[in-house]
Write a protein that binds this DNA or RNA. Sequence first.
DNA 1: GTGTGTGTTTCTGATTCCGAAACGTCGACC
DNA 2: GGTCGACGTTTCGGAATCAGAAACACACAC
Lengths: 113, 113
Amino acid sequence: MTDRSAPRPGRAVRGSTTGRPLMAAMDLLGRRWALRLLWELRSGPLGARALLARCDGLSSSVLYERLRDLVDAALVVQDDDGRYELTDVGRELGTALQPLDAWARRWSRELDG
Amino acid sequence: MTDRSAPRPGRAVRGSTTGRPLMAAMDLLGRRWALRLLWELRSGPLGARALLARCDGLSSSVLYERLRDLVDAALVVQDDDGRYELTDVGRELGTALQPLDAWARRWSRELDG
DNA sequence: GTGTGTGTTTCTGATTCCGAAACGTCGACC
DNA sequence: GGTCGACGTTTCGGAATCAGAAACACACAC
């Protein structure tokens, strides 16, 4: 690992050397479990083990790597109790993703009638 | 590999055995380049090589794997000329992701002031 | 002390990815 | 006819990322 750093707008990002914000966002959110973790944190702060319990199949190694990414990206912080919670901009992302939830239901109906 | 199949609502999905639509969506969209490909197709049908040209760093092997996923999920189809284009529900996803674009800009301002 | 619950890191093997090369096809163009 | 280029697609080795289990440290309860 050594050199891991989370994508941030303004930096070179996988898939785009321009660092365009949306590309940085897609690089970050396109990593496994990133979207899901943000989704789980919408409802309030959670500890690491609580997150693991909610995300069936998530391994702890990836969890902590992803949490580091999200903290780096200023979407998540640790509160005084050590639990992880969304920052303001992280919470905004939650609402920005809300249409996705509604879409997923339409998608589901579309597929199996 | 052999047995790859794209996540679809109603089936067991990585991260959730319930097959809840949103979890299926996040599994699908959480794969590398999936979001980005949908984003690039928003503006109209594109051939495989055009997609490769737009996605700097995307390899052809992953492109075709992802395209298979998206076609499986009924978000993308091939038109008569062989180009890939969004289905109706795929286009709806595009608009559902639109708030993400606006959010990414706010995020960018947030990070580097 | 012996548990049991956290948070976190480390290791190994499996999956996924990149990158480049190769294949076939089609339509120029000579 | 042949050759050239642009396209769609598949294959393969090495690199990055992942899952899964194990282990560590730290609390607090019994």
